[in-house]
Design a protein around this nucleic acid. Sequence first.
DNA 1: CATAACTAGGACTAGTTTAGTCCAAGTTAG
DNA 2: CTAACTTGGACTAAACTAGTCCTAGTTATG
Lengths: 148, 148
Amino acid sequence: MLRLSKMADYGTQVMTYMARDLAVHSASEVSAGLGIAAPTVSKILKMLVRKNLVDSVMGAKGGYMLARDPAAISIAEIIDAMDGPISITECSGTTTCERESTCSTRSNWQGINHIIQNALEKVNLAEMISPKPQVMDMSALRSRGILI
Amino acid sequence: MLRLSKMADYGTQVMTYMARDLAVHSASEVSAGLGIAAPTVSKILKMLVRKNLVDSVMGAKGGYMLARDPAAISIAEIIDAMDGPISITECSGTTTCERESTCSTRSNWQGINHIIQNALEKVNLAEMISPKPQVMDMSALRSRGILI
DNA sequence: CATAACTAGGACTAGTTTAGTCCAAGTTAG
DNA sequence: CTAACTTGGACTAAACTAGTCCTAGTTATG
């Protein structure tokens, strides 16, 4: 449950790959480096460009590079770029369902959404590539204010 | 992104409906009460029974009822019953990917998973049906230890 | 004990979404 | 001017999801 789409998964893989070396990478290089089909990587990079997470350099010797410092790019942004807004249930947007008045459940979902969104915003790319996992153990999470 | 499946959404709707009145409800009654197609509700209730979130009473005048106190049923359990284990990325289980050794990303995902799982476990059915949203505002979340 | 009102379980279908491919056009280095 | 790139979008195939339907089993009630 709570599946992250494969695209979002690939998206973070691509981003972490690029975070490890801030130079310009061609789509085919990234593809080879990650073992993901070239057209797919290409597609993902285009999406990331559109969301300003990645800058593109056209022409020969061109390619893609991170638009910002890895520490300034959150996981939430990446997922959002690939899958659209982080929202866990349908009735979160403008769509007003008929039984809205009686639906006390709704605002609770929104609270849950906030929690998750918050958690994902607190993890950035720089942390994802740190060789020794720092985010993993719970005490570290707590000290960083992600968890209770 | 981070979409909750419609089934999981329905699942929580059904559960909150039943939490409001702990008596036995037939599938058709729940269907009418929620405005969800009867076969679908029926299917959902069966899934919930299998996961021991709901008890069934067979025969005439039979139906379904919550297996436990609403306060003892977390949202995480419900979502899990409908969609399977809460996991945000593919390589969370037993499947070992080839580049596991170099994959420092993986453990970070697991940390994120923990955060989300944790958040969903802390919200229970009883809270979902409370008329005035208590979980919604962030300060309340903090005081309850869900958020920083 | 017969019937009506239920649940149990699973097979099945239609629809939507997702992943992935491909092609034509525009840009730039050399 | 050519080779190596990106851009954008159209397109296809496969997977998944939601939803339907059918048969069998269980129990209350008259």
